[in-house]
Amino acid sequence: MTLTLTVPPGAKVRVRITNENGETTEIEVEPGETVTITLPAGSTVRVEVEVVDPDGRKRTETFTLKP
């Protein structure tokens, strides 16, 4: 399973991925970048995406991906 994120110009994104064992991976994606994350097959993962807009506003979306 893959997750692809494209960050709009001016925004910053931090992604936290937590697996079933509670292990967390965190990455930051710079403005204008596209990143593809390969998620472990057969695992349920929690993905938290934090977006910081150019004006400093933050918003966070959290979702769970199941196999």
Rank of each mutant, 00 (worst) to 15 (best):
T6A: 09
N21T: 06
V35A: 05
T6D: 15
T62M: 03
T34W: 15
P54I: 07
V49I: 13
V13C: 11
V13M: 04
T24E: 08
D55T: 02
V49D: 00
T24A: 12
T6Y: 10
I37L: 07
K12Q: 14
L39Y: 07
D53M: 14
G32W: 14
T34E: 09
A11D: 07
G22C: 15
P54S: 09
R16F: 06
V35Q: 04
T60N: 01
E30G: 03
V45F: 11
K12S: 14
E23V: 10
E23K: 06
F63D: 00
E28F: 03
V47A: 02
E28T: 04
T38R: 07
V15I: 06
R59V: 07
V7A: 01
P67Y: 15
I27S: 10
M1V: 07
F63N: 01
K66I: 14
S43D: 14
G42Y: 10
T4I: 12
A41M: 09
I37G: 05
K58W: 02
P67M: 14
P54V: 06
V35F: 09
V51K: 01
N19G: 11
T36D: 08
K58L: 05
K66G: 15
V29E: 15
P8G: 14
L39N: 11
G56L: 00
E33Y: 11
T24G: 11
V52K: 02
V47F: 01
G32S: 14
R57Y: 02
V13P: 10
E61S: 04
E48I: 03
P31T: 06
E20M: 04
V15T: 10
E48S: 03
L65V: 13
T36W: 12
E30Y: 04
E50I: 04
S43P: 05
K66S: 15
V51D: 01
P9L: 05
G32C: 13
G32N: 13
T18V: 11
E23W: 13
T4D: 07
G42F: 11
P54N: 04
T36Y: 11
V51R: 01
P40K: 12
V29S: 12
V29G: 06
P8Q: 11
A41L: 12
K66Y: 15
T62P: 00
V47Y: 01
R57E: 03
T64S: 02
I17P: 02
T64M: 07
T36P: 10
R57A: 03
E28R: 05
D53G: 11
N21G: 09
M1I: 10
T18R: 05
E23G: 09
N19Y: 12
G22Q: 09
G32Y: 12
E20Y: 08
V35E: 02
G42K: 07
T24L: 05
G56N: 00
V29T: 12
T6V: 05
V13H: 00
P40A: 08
V35W: 13
R16I: 05
E48G: 01
T34C: 13
R16H: 05
T64K: 02
I27K: 09
P67L: 15
V35N: 06
D53R: 01
R59S: 04
T18G: 10
T4V: 10
I27H: 11
T6R: 06
V52T: 15
G22I: 09
T36N: 10
E20P: 04
L5M: 12
A11I: 00
P31Q: 08
P40T: 14
L3D: 01
E50F: 01
E48Q: 05
K58I: 14
T38P: 08
T2S: 06
R57N: 11
T36E: 13
D53L: 14
R59L: 03
V47H: 00
D53V: 00
E61W: 15
T64C: 15
P31K: 12
E20C: 11
V52A: 02
V7Q: 04
E33V: 08
T18L: 09
F63S: 01
V15P: 01
T24W: 05
P9Y: 06
L39Q: 05
D55Y: 03
P9Q: 07
V13N: 01
D55P: 00
I37T: 12
P40Q: 11
R46H: 05
F63R: 00
K12D: 14
S43H: 09
R16V: 04
A41P: 04
G32H: 11
T38W: 09
E26A: 06
K12A: 13
V45N: 08
V35Y: 13
V29K: 10
I17T: 12
V15Y: 06
L39V: 04
G56H: 00
T38D: 07
E30M: 05
L3E: 02
V49E: 00
E23A: 08
E28G: 10
E33C: 14
V35M: 08
T60F: 05
E48D: 07
E61L: 15
T60E: 01
V47R: 01
T2G: 09
I37E: 10
E28V: 02
